[in-house]
Amino acid sequence: MNSDHKMQQKLRHEAKALLEQDKVDLIIGFEAGSLKFTTTPLITKSKDDLDRLVINPFIVNNLALFLPDFKGRIAVASKGCDSRSIVSLIQDNKVSRDDLVIIGIPCPGMIELRKVEKLTGKDRDELDDIIREGDKVVITVDGKGSEFPIAEVLSDNCLACEFPTPQDYDILLGEPTATSQESRVKSRESRVKGQGSRVQSHGEGGGLQSEASPDSRLQTLKAMSPQQRWEFWRKEFSRCIRCYACRNICPSCFCKRCFVEESEPRWLMPMPRWQENLMFQAIRNIHLAGRCTDCGGCERSCPVNIPLRCLTKEMYDLVDELFHFKAGMDKDAPPLMTHYEQEEAEDLIR
């Protein structure tokens, strides 16, 4: 029985108890999705639904997103980044801590299906199975299993995660996750050789196109000249269709009315031109300064693969560098952009 399964059992048990003892009105967690290797939010008031709750490496959505939508007392399953988003919402007075029961999931990282697809050359629905075993993952295609280090397929934001264990919780479903970057990088170095005949092993340089570091894309971008970078984003944002999935999946984008939809004054045209698309993301990122917890939801949800995390992670790092601030760590702290400290001025205004 792996740890996900144990946590899943405990989650079902705890959720049931919370409803039975009338401690909450609503449970928000994950259930199996309708597609392979997919989960979907489970939002329910019914005890009968709780056996559908799951924990697996595909519970990618940041469930903090749903909290402002519902009234009453809510129990919410929460990974490290989700819990920080919840705290951030509390800081912004969007939800009240008293109404919440945070069921913490010490998070071992989420598997990025796009990486699996790149690794295997197959679409997700053509894969037989993806099984995580500790630091390894076994991907089965056409009945044949191949083993990879887990770091090959984890999301970039998970590889870079500083706080995989929830920062604030009422119930923790397992042992806190050993942090994080160091251990994962280490595991990457000691690649596991194949065991057993079913599993085919991939060694170093076995044609794998993994990233050297989770932020290598960002570093590549930073190494470009401004002209190159401008050209890069022009190209990327030419694809944007302005579906606003990046905004709507984001718990920090809680505004009832977004600046992009204001018509008086009209900040931005509603049409998908790259200039407008880029401005939309630029302004969105500024609004997210000190709120973004690097959950990776925006990039993951983008239907046209715009590398949005290159923007959000840069803002995340900037906030840390300029203000020594990490989003969603202290529910009693004021939101970053609502207060000012004297020593900030010198650094900020150049």
């Binding site: 679409d123 970039d156 894309r217 715009i306």
Partner: peptide
Amino acid sequence: NEGDTAFTVHGSRL
């Protein structure tokens, strides 16, 4: 295929 450049980490076919 667009977006499956050497740069993008996400290999899924666009």
